[in-house]
Simulated scan of single mutants.
Amino acid sequence: MRPLLLLLCLIFSACVLAQTPPLSPEQTVRQLYQAYGQDSASPPPYFGNIGEKAIISTRMQNAVALNHQLTLRGDANWPDSDPLCECQDYENLVLESVAIKPVDETHVNAVVRFRPFADSDERVTQTLMLVAENDRWLIDDIRGKYGGVYQNINRANQSMLAKLASLQKAQPEDFVYALFNHLNDYSWPWTWAVSQQYRQAVEEYYQASFYSREEWAAQKGILARTATRPWPWSWTRPFAREYRLAVNSDNQQAFVRPDRLTEEMSVDRFYLYNNPICHCVESQLNDVEAIHIVEQYDNFARIEVLFSLKDAASVEHKEQQLMLRRVDNRWEIEDFIDPESGSLLKQMQAITRQRIWGE
């Protein structure tokens, strides 16, 4: 009996050892902050990475991913600074100390103190809460002077989900009225009023549009200016913001030469940045004049909306139809049908194919 018990103990010990990450918590933390130092050959890791490049736990990845989905393309999502250095900028960060405090077999807290700028006396102290997952120590939370990162991002997510839930109504025409009635508050992304298929089309259009603008970004100096900046200053993010300013500018020639991109930028403004619920910039909405049910059965509804838009000089009367479907007791928009040009979804998909494959 004793030999069998000894064998079981050895097997159990081997399993425990096999689950221990090869890098210790302190080695993991020092490796993370080394990327911010003067001698680093590579930029710091992106906080929102997933898979093999992830530095955050599954729980944190899920929270970051949801926040990303709840944010319109080109808008700043949460957090708007790098949680690891609690900063938007740094220069030759100096890690002064790392104190490891075990919690249990798979959790430890790492209290770190560092100077974001080597030539400054300003110091930051925060706690990295690490969890052992997938043979690595990953960040499950960061506690600093602004509270916990996970708590803050989860609070932002839940607030947005509650706002979206408040727009849902039992009847499809009431849901459409709520969408139009809340366009001007800017507190919710229209991408969460549409179906997964439509969101995917927006994502594909965005990728086809912005990655094809890399040459333009380099010409504007964006890549060079952000190459050494920490997350979230990867080139796609400031590029999206600057490009958004460009496509929404009344003077696009201030951003690009007259013979470059002006026409495509106008198209991007329509499909990416103009809210398709009204085919407009939200502040242009003047009035909802009428809402009619054209067709309705089971979990499907086709709603016609008559509304008006205004600018400094005039009021324009518009009409469009929204194709709705109820999924999991929630109304979502499958497509927008313009009386003259037809399906917005099909138009957007056609432009995406043309930009990727030249079809």
Results as ranks from 00 to 15, higher is better:
Trp78Met: 11
Pro83Met: 06
Gln61Pro: 06
Val305Asn: 09
Gln171Pro: 04
Ile100Cys: 07
Leu95Gly: 04
Glu304Asn: 06
Asp185Glu: 07
Gln158Thr: 15
Ala350Lys: 08
Val94Ser: 08
Ser97Arg: 15
Leu6Ile: 02
Asn154Ala: 08
Ile293Glu: 03
Asp39Leu: 12
Pro116Asn: 11
Arg241Tyr: 14
Ala193Ser: 15
His107Thr: 04
Trp235Ile: 13
Leu161Thr: 14
Arg326Asp: 02
Tyr33Ser: 00
Ala227Ile: 15
Arg136Glu: 05
Ile55Cys: 02
Arg199Gln: 12
Gly342Lys: 00
Leu344Asn: 10
Ala63Leu: 11
Gln126Leu: 15
Trp231Thr: 09
Arg30Trp: 07
Leu306Asn: 15
Pro232Tyr: 05
Ala240Met: 09
Lys101Asn: 11
Leu306Val: 08
Glu204Asn: 13
Lys169Leu: 00
Val288Gly: 10
Gln349Met: 01
Ala227Trp: 12
Gly51Lys: 00
Glu91Asp: 12
Asp250Phe: 13
Leu10Ile: 07
Glu203Asp: 15
Ser97Leu: 07
Ile337Trp: 05
Met160Thr: 15
Ala165Val: 06
Asn134His: 08
Asn181Ala: 15
Thr236Lys: 08
Lys145Leu: 13
Gln321Met: 11
Val111Trp: 09
Phe336Val: 03
Glu334Lys: 08
Glu105Ser: 03
Val256Tyr: 14
Tyr36His: 01
Ser212Phe: 06
Pro172Gly: 01
Phe210Thr: 14
Gln31Asn: 10
